[in-house]
Design a protein around this nucleic acid. Structure first.
Lengths: 333, 333
DNA sequence: TTGTAGGCGTTATCAG
DNA sequence: CTGATAACGCCTACAA
């Protein structure tokens, strides 16, 4: 006793499959016809097969969101925003994890051609020629939440991390901090390079020299802890920083643990600023001042762009930049 | 210029569609045949349509993992474990969020009949007759990570939270704490009821009375903060607790913030124990002693059960219980 | 080894 | 308004 098909329903209702299909899709039909079909559907517990349906109509009403690391709370924020927009439009959202490897992302984009979903929302952490190429050639509409060259020819929604960096530096300087260090993630990533440059520029704007710059091997809590000594063990001539800006919240929290272990107090001895303003920023202790790079808004707008492009694939690609703000909490004076 | 189909490849290669299909599926073929097909596939950039394929073969090679709240770090742990097992077996994992509403879970389970995936791994937070019914009647194999009545007739993998609770209480008592309170999540949830009973029993085993019990409206950080006053504002006759066990890590972290705000020190004044032993437990400050309910192992074993059931749907349902352990950190003396 | 043809479950077209 | 039937893209007997 396998799943009932539309043919079974038709037989049970004593009508044709075409009529069943029509009733189910709300096309005009007699009162009585609708009645009979509905009953048969209910009796048999019939549920249309989405594969067969999408094979025919060419749409799956599924959208894929691909993120690098489900453990990064910034994606939680983004995911929630995307989910809201997408489900309001009648689509299902499926989330897949790519991991940090770029080849996995390329494989994912290429695999979209297989008809799993009607569109892809991807937030790549590393970008290379292959990825750009795969995105440009992708069979289904793609929207990138992040920075990808214009020649990829896709809609993008990205953060303005240089400006975010400036907000952070302004705030620290206003609070009297001058010995500012930077804890970055891997420099070969898109956010890594953007934030490194943003940091350098922001300090320059204040005519300050960086006290120290360290690079974690990953945008994770563990990597943040591991990289902290590079900031704290600086040679005596340079001295300790009185503030550290971190490329994301996870790194910041990792750093704060090492600061505590080293007997340094936040913010009294060292102020700490994170980026992303994720849920973690208010969960950690002390609560973390963090640059809000607009992850929720980026998610929302990216989802909207994707839906719009599914409607009309000929529109010229838009490149939206979401402006940052600073959420000030207890980790800065 | 839409997607090339297998027919296009056959035409380009000058062979039949059957031959293309065979080459692609690794069935015997001439060296030359394979050669020509491969070239045509590469030239056209052909990618098989998974919908058509699964419509024919009856399998999608996709598995669905449904969780209530992507913001709960315990699911991150579980997700990672599931992903590992599942992808090793050649399946794609898609994650969907149900939210706390039970009707959404039922809708999800029912919707599985539409052929989105070959199996469902669900971790329901609330369970009622409807859900059990939908699970029992589900067209595709279902494995429940959590507690569901045996009559649902499905494989389950669940935690032993009473025993976990006992580990927590034993630890606190060994450290000299006697005035133990409990911060639970909603009592109408599966984990909520199990943990409430576990707490009561564990205290009884030590012949202790609970100092206070509070119930958060949700298993979230925010709800934990909001419920904290109910534990700290107890009437003077009862006094303050010297330890609080929380039903999960998010609640514990929320509570710790309120303790700090009230000028109470952890663990000196109040010891705090969480449950789940999620990533958050070592990210928060002080690091959180937490009952490890085996989320990773539960995820892994649930995934294995699901794969096994897909292989053979006639096997009798197994009900696995994963044993807890205690991860001792700084939030307890 | 290779090709032909039928069918998976659905929707859309075209007669009635 | 309803019913028969041809696709959608693929796999797999079966035949050559």
């Amino acid at each position: 006793m396998s799943r009932p098909t539309i043919a079974g329903v038709a037989r049970a209702a004593g009508v044709s499959v075409a009529s069943v299909s029509r009733v189910l899709n709300g096309l005009p039909a007699t009162e009585e016809m609708a009645e009979r079909v509905q009953r048969a559907v209910a009796d048999l517990g019939y549920v249309p097969d989405s594969r067969a349906r999408s094979l025919k109509v060419g749409r799956t009403f599924q959208l894929t969101l691909a993120v690098a690391d489900v453990g990064n709370p910034v994606y939680v924020t983004m995911m929630r925003a995307v989910e809201e927009v997408v489900s309001a439009a009648g689509y299902r959202l499926v989330v897949t994890t790519t991991g940090p490897e770029i080849v996995d992302e390329v494989a994912l984009v290429r695999g979209m051609a297989r008809g799993y979903a009607d569109g892809l929302l991807i937030s790549p952490i590393r970008v290379d020629e292959d990825l750009v190429k795969s995105i440009r050639e992708c069979e289904v509409p793609v929207v990138v939440a992040g920075n990808v060259p214009a020649k990829a020819g896709v809609d993008t929604v990205r953060a303005n991390s240089p400006k975010g960096m400036l907000l952070a530096v302004n705030h620290l300087v206003a609070k009297g901090r001058r010995r500012i260090a930077f804890l970055n993630g891997p420099a070969d990533t898109v956010p890594g390079t953007a934030r490194a440059k943003g940091f350098a520029d922001a300090l320059k704007a204040h005519k300050l020299q960086p006290i120290a710059v360290a690079e974690a091997t990953d945008f994770t809590f563990t990597a943040g802890r591991a990289a902290a000594p590079a900031l704290l063990g600086v040679k005596v001539s340079a001295g300790l920083p009185d503030a550290v800006i971190c490329a994301n919240d996870l790194l910041a929290v990792g750093l704060m643990h090492e600061l505590a272990a080293a007997g340094l107090e936040v913010p009294a001895d060292v102020a700490v600023v994170g980026m992303d303003d994720s849920e973690l920023a208010e969960q950690c202790f002390p609560t973390l001042t963090s640059v809000n790079l607009g992850s929720a808004e980026r998610g929302r707008r990216a989802a909207e762009l994707l839906l719009a492009r599914i409607e009309d694939n000929d529109r010229t690609p838009r490149r939206i930049v979401v402006q940052p703000s600073l959420s000030i909490r207890r980790s800065t004076p």
